[in-house]
Design a protein around this nucleic acid. Sequence first.
RNA 1: CCGCCUGUAGCUCAGCGGGACAGAGCAACGGACUUCUAAUCCGUGGGUCAGAGGUUCGAGUCCUCUCAGGCGGACCA
Length: 724
Amino acid sequence: MPLNDIRDRAAAALAAALEAELGHRPDEVVLEVPPRRDLGDLAWPGALPLARVLKRAPRQIAETVAAQAVWPPEVRKVEVAGPGFLNLWLDRTEVLGRLLRGEHGGVFGSAVKTVVEHTNINPNKAAHIGHLRNAVLGDVLVRCLAGLGLEVEVQNYVDDTGVQVADVVVGLLHLPETDLADCLGDEPVRRDELIERAIALDSGGVPDAATDDFDDFCWALYPRVTARYAEDDAFREHRAEVLHAVEAGPGGLDLEQSLALLRGAVIGGDPWPQRAVAGLAAAVADANLRCHLATMARLGIGYDLLPHESDILRLGFWRRAFDLLRESGAIRLEAEGKNAGCWVMSLAASPEFADMDDPDKILVRSNGTVTYTGKDIAYQLWKLGLLVDADGARFDFGYRRYADWRQDGPAEPVRYVGGGEGRCLASTTAAPEQRLEGRSFGAAGRVYNVIDVRQAYPQRVVKEAVRVLGHPEAADSSVHFAYEMVALTPAAVRVIEQRSGTSFGLSDDEMAKPYVEMSGRRGIGVRADEFLDVLVDAAEDAIVGRLDGAGEPADIAERARAIAVGALRYLMARQSRNRVLAFDFDEALAFEGDTGPYLQYSAVRAAKIFDKLEARRGEGRFSADELPSLAGLEVPDDLWGLVLECARRRDVVAQAVGSLEFSLLAQHTHGLAQLFHRLYHAHPVVPEDDAALRALRRAVFTVFVGEMRVLLEELLGIPIPGEM
RNA sequence: CCGCCUGUAGCUCAGCGGGACAGAGCAACGGACUUCUAAUCCGUGGGUCAGAGGUUCGAGUCCUCUCAGGCGGACCA
């Protein structure tokens, strides 16, 4: 964008003048955007701290620089203000012209391949609004990186061998049939039939989403399993049995065969056949995964790769990572003490962990199984291209085409399509000879892991492991994008309890706190699809409520969807990442004020101007060819404020990515919408008969419309409906 | 006990390279639709930026301490 370009050249001119006139070579010249427009378009406060160094009055320094610098042509006026601020005014028409010509700044940073890992929902139940925060933040990061010109690969990690999937399988195999029937909303029948009915909820492929899917069944089932564990120790032993079966794998059994074996076991009263249990577990994990993909598709979120934890294990990634760690002396086998029999990574030598009581992290349990952190180290090494064998050859997964998806616009929903058309979503496989034509994955120069802040400690361990294996730069390029959790306000908890007709049994103490933590184990939470449905309904009501007697528009569903997605994505993006997001229905369903629909409305309103302009005057958007017609026209302050803000996009995106604080981007977009809404009343376009004035307004609003399209649709993933 | 995060208007939050009068939204009250859609705009009221020290020409912003809350420091993830 032009502003950073002009600023860089102005800063260079300033630095040169400082050196030539005052013999001072500054480390860095920082030009900022002043808080008020009457203080100029760019400002340099640097004369104030220099006063002491140069032993001159700050105003004198600023005045000397102002007079002597060879300013770039876009700088129209320079003034010294207050105690010694140097304020610059830009050539407004010139900046406007550049924006209309769509000039962009240079490439951002070094163009390394970047992997972003996000979503990562345990495939044992439906996604909830906490997962939405993860996915939206991750997706906005991806969009911003791509917007800055970087190659980005999006990975959604599937923990398909963990205990949580096993718990659901335990529920299917061992909870009373009445429980299963309850969760299905069905009459109790024989267990194998209930299992088959549950599995039948999975439509195959990536479903069209919405509620009452397989993941919703698991959402209901899972808390019943954990509750039973708590009251019955014997029941808990089923978990180990299932985990054992999952570890051994289904041995080539498909789902049909597994179900048949399970049916046979029920009829014969035999113990569960291990391979069939593993087959069922695989089906549960995969069905939930596809439900998650469908949920995220509604928000326009797609992925490149689904790395499976089971493949990391089967392909010996962990074994190799373990060897590398052992060879480098980073881990050791504890012979005694509380960690006896475990392989631990010593963190004592790392200054970051020095203050800890027990600066060791267990990677291999005394029973020989690897912890999640251990697996994550192997995965991280692979992502960075650092998991190599003794000959230096990279370890890699096998890959298969999992699905194909398409998107009609940058903020449109993702649609999973058949037959190899569209973008390929790949899955890892355990057969390394399986390749996908022309595709390669991992081996990134930079890796972002979008994971909530509660996992900061294991994430630091992973990073430290990369470092001690002799890859300090790669460790520095491994970024934990940490964000605070989404919790529920007590009011939201009451709404859910009322709606579902159940009680979570929370104590008065818990309900007196400002927020209640969500818990899949206890079934406390708002499911993502459920919330999206509520949002869509509320949006429809809002549309109908504003119709004022007119007939219902044909595209009402599409409009409502866009508004719901806008409200949701903005809600997740606008808040600073290290603050707990206390979810409240009233607040989340607000469509006025500082909300997604407010931003969308500004874009719709602006686009509408051009529709009416076309219809009534035959004039369209302002094109760069018309620029000469603006010669000699002064851009008034208020319109200029909007233009200058539009010019700042690149700065804002770079700052947001640098600090991983996308509330900056949300806020900037909100500010822009706000400026437009204010101008809307004072600067009518269609009714304006003065051609020159109309041209100027067309020019400014053309820039605004284009800018909002990029900010909302491309970067924030918020669709702009045709009408609202 | 140790580490990280948070504390700004009644409520939810901005203010993340120290800088020029501390901002939005919600809620309250009062205005503006024969006009390019009022999901908008304008106005009013509302703040010892948790507290105390310090650094600086200048501190909501940086440092130290105190207080309050949250999260980590698992052979859970």
